[in-house]
Design a protein around this nucleic acid. Structure first.
Length: 431
RNA sequence: GCGAGCGUGGCCAAGUGGUUAAGGCAGUGGAUUGUGAUUCCACCAUUCGCGGGUUCAAGUCCCGUCGUUCGCCCCA
């Protein structure tokens, strides 16, 4: 066992799985272009400082999970731990704000975090990231949430729950944070060790603790919602009002606190109960301060990240999408002349729109038929010495075994008949 | 970073200290030198993730290491 293995926490997406990824990407693309979103592609690595400044030095994603290294020029580089920061950097650097109005952007690709792999978590994972930059309106929040739910429901994922919260303005959050520290400090020794640690680092996280005793203490802790200023409250109310109006169910969860520093106001999470400990399929929120913080013009924004691996897990559980290869014709040949003709025939057929696989084995016809049968093709074509000599080909309908002979040129010209027969057989098979 | 479980061929596995490492699927060749989900035959692990130790004897016990799975932290 000295062969080289994939890096821990990375995974090959094999041919048996990739069709599912294509389905997800296709549906996402469709929904996003319906809503006037434009794709942006940004590098998977950036200056480490971008993440330190944007996401926050104290967050786990940056503080302890970042894949950072020095490049040959001595610069500190990091594989992106999430997508938003790089996207905002691109927005600023390319002056997309100069186009005025609202920018609707999306990006799909890998992100990296140095963590122990477990169910639904890898070191390299893939995210769909969708952002609206330049709108403070509550309708932008709602549009973002609606897009997320539409992608998920179009995929057929229905057993999901949407949690909603407002973390208020930066000021609201600071006030709340102070109040929490004041509330928890007297109980410090009763808290679980993790939460004691969080008291300094990130007191909002204590609310999420799974420890029983801590949860008892949390019951009477002040609620974030009581610390929203008037504007924050109005925004939050408007978001809820619109969501209800368009029929999106949600649960207010005052304990929903997202892990990255840049969030303000709306925070949301979409979860599934079928994912083990990593239940979040999609998480997002508003980040009105980030663009300015990274050196751009003051630009409000909101967006979400959706975890593609987690979608794949859910879709595999449902077994709703076929991953069978799509093939019209399997071409069998044997003998030098036949093999020569088969390549020409195959390319002519492909030019006519057929999906064609050529058997390259040169093995006995019996073996080739076996493979034809397993290939999933509807029609088998047989080219042996006799056919090659006569410029003919045998057509064998693999479902029925019915077989006939025609000239190769007739086959190539007879596109409509053959195609409609293939379509008919395929329709019967799925009926 | 912490905790627990698991590591036998491409895949699924039996094996619980006695030595020749079951079986199934897949694969390859043949019976069938041109007809496919049937049948039959043959081939397919000098070796049980890797390294060390205990023992007359180790896939089986011990230690280490790597990988993997699940959980904690945290998050997509």
């Amino acid at each position: 066992m000295s062969s080289i293995q994939a890096i821990r926490g990375t995974r090959d997406i094999l041919p048996s799985e990739s069709p599912l990824w294509v389905v997800i990407e296709g549906i996402a693309r469709h929904v996003l272009s319906q809503s006037a979103y434009k794709e942006i592609r940004t590098p998977i690595f950036e200056m480490t400082e971008l993440f330190a400044r944007g996401i926050g030095e104290a967050t786990d994603a940056v503080g302890k999970e970042m894949y950072s290294f020095e490049d040959r020029g001595g610069r500190s580089i990091a594989l992106r731990p999430e997508i938003t920061a790089g996207l905002v950097r691109a927005f600023i650097q390319n002056k997309l704000f100069a186009q005025g109005g609202v920018q609707r952007l999306w990006h799909i690709g890998p992100a990296f975090r140095y963590e122990r792999p477990q169910a639904g978590r890898q070191r390299q994972f893939h995210q769909l990231d969708v952002e609206i930059l330049g709108s403070r309106d509550a309708r932008a929040d709602v549009e973002i949430i609606a897009i997320a739910t539409q992608i998920l429901s179009t995929l057929g994922l229905t057993a999901l729950s949407l949690d909603l919260n407002s973390v208020g303005s930066g000021e609201d959050r600071q006030n709340y944070r102070d109040a929490l520290v004041a509330y928890f400090s007297p109980y410090k020794s009763d808290l679980d060790p993790d939460s004691q640690d969080r008291l300094d680092r990130n007191p909002l996280r204590i609310l999420d603790s799974k420890d029983k005793r801590t949860q008892e203490i949390v019951t009477n802790a002040p609620s974030l919602l009581d610390f929203l200023c008037e504007d924050s409250q109005r925004h939050f109310d408007a978001v809820q009002h619109h969501l209800t109006n368009i029929g999106i169910d949600f649960t207010i969860n005052p304990r929903l606190v997202r892990g990255l520093d840049y969030y303000t106001h709306t925070a949301f999470e979409i979860q599934s109960s079928d994912l083990g400990a990593q239940a979040t399929v999609c998480g997002g929120g508003r980040y009105d301060g980030l663009v300015a913080q990274l050196g751009g013009p003051d630009t409000p924004a909101i967006g979400f990240g959706m975890g593609l691996e987690r979608l794949v897990i859910l879709l595999e559980q449902m077994a709703q999408y076929s991953t069978d290869p799509f093939l019209d014709i399997y071409l069998i040949s044997r003998g030098e002349k036949a093999e020569l003709q088969s390549m020409k025939l195959a390319s002519q057929l492909r030019q006519n729109g057929y999906f064609v696989e050529v058997d390259l084995s040169g093995s006995a016809f019996g073996k080739q038929f076996k493979r034809a049968d397993r290939s999933g093709a509807v029609l088998g074509l047989i080219l042996g010495d006799a056919e090659a000599e006569a410029q003919k080909v045998q057509l064998k309908w693999l479902g029925s075994g019915e077989q006939s002979e025609m000239t190769q040129s007739a086959l190539v010209e007879n596109v409509d008949d053959i195609k409609s027969k293939i379509a008919k057989i395929r329709a019967q098979a799925t009926a």
